[in-house]
Design a protein around this nucleic acid. Structure first.
Length: 291
DNA sequence: CACTTGACCTGTCCGC
DNA sequence: TGCGGACAGGTCAAGT
């Protein structure tokens, strides 16, 4: 699922829905989805009040007033959906809800709050919730290694150039997917950004010019910003904190458009495999430079 | 070392 | 209708 725009959409939804509520109870149906010691959970989570919901890269952080934080990674199919106690299925969620009654068979964790329940659903069980002292969160391996936030003020074309240096011999697609190079991009947005920049995903990083880096920079910021406005991309599983789909894929130019004409030149969009991932390309607009 | 592959899981879709 | 295989938005560990 969830790349930066989807995780950010969930964060915003949760910030509106669950901040200020006290956690009453937690049910864990699949241990690996929340592998912490139950004693710790009892001591620092039950009866804690939710203070804030933050995001770094594709990771969500729910800060509690016990100075502990629930760190959450949705991986491919994770969902965090809040249902208020007065929720009536169908009311206010006519066509855009992808979720039916909760909990359902993919519910791995249920967090009971004052006014409703927060459900962690995860079909493929790759995602997780882990409890850390809030001050320890920056010291988690992932947080220490992860690259800059692409929508942050400190992110510039020069920064992108410097980050890409560490993967000079890689394919540009693999480098942009590498979270230690840059935070938040995944398969959908890398394909979209490379198409918008007219760069073939199999181009070696060392062959990318500075003008192309400036183009990548601009397209990364524009595409991620637009997708957040559209509530992210729902390909299969992704939903926001209310269970609703995102609409960005209606605006995508190559992702899931294989067999359809390129919106720029009319050539048929093809799907191949690059860096082990399904990859969408316009073979006319995106060419590998050769010497 | 830099880079690629397999593993973690369930579900769906496609060809036979 | 059933069955095998490929594939799905992410990230690690282990392999080359």
């Amino acid at each position: 699922m969830p790349e930066l725009p989807e995780v950010e959409t969930v964060r915003r939804g949760l910030n509106d829905l669950i901040v200020g509520q006290e956690i009453k109870d937690i049910w864990i149906g699949w241990h690996k989805s929340f592998p912490n010691d139950l004693i710790q959970v009892k001591n620092y989570v039950i009866q804690a009040t939710i203070v804030k919901v933050r995001r770094r890269a594709k990771v969500l952080m729910i800060d509690l007033d016990t100075n502990y934080t629930l760190v959450i990674h949705l991986k491919m199919t994770g969902q965090l959906v809040y249902r208020g106690k007065n929720f009536i299925f169908g009311a206010g969620h006519p066509t855009d809800s992808l979720i039916n009654d909760l909990p359902d068979k993919s519910t791995r964790v249920t967090i009971s709050l004052d006014s409703g329940n927060l459900y962690f659903n995860d079909q493929r069980k790759f995602g997780w919730i882990k409890l850390f002292p809030t001050l320890e969160v920056p010291n988690i391996d992932f947080m220490k290694k992860v690259g800059p936030e692409p929508l942050g003020e400190e992110f510039t074309p020069k920064v992108l150039e410097a980050r890409l240096q560490k993967r000079k011999n890689s394919l540009i697609k693999a480098a942009l997917l590498d979270q230690t190079v840059l935070a938040g991009l995944g398969n959908i947005y890398v394909d979209e950004v490379l198409f918008a920049s007219k760069i073939h995903p199999e181009t070696r990083v060392r062959d990318i010019t500075y003008n192309q880096i400036k183009l990548l920079y601009k397209n990364i910021r524009n595409i991620l910003t637009l997708s957040i406005e559209k509530g992210g991309s729902t390909d299969r599983n992704y939903v926001d904190a209310e269970g609703k789909r995102g609409s960005y894929l209606n605006f995508a130019k190559v992702f899931r458009r294989e067999g359809q004409p390129c919106l720029v030149c009319g050539t048929e969009i093809i799907k191949t495999r690059v860096a082990g991932r399904g990859t969408h390309i316009c073979p006319y607009c995106q060419k590998i430079p050769h010497d």
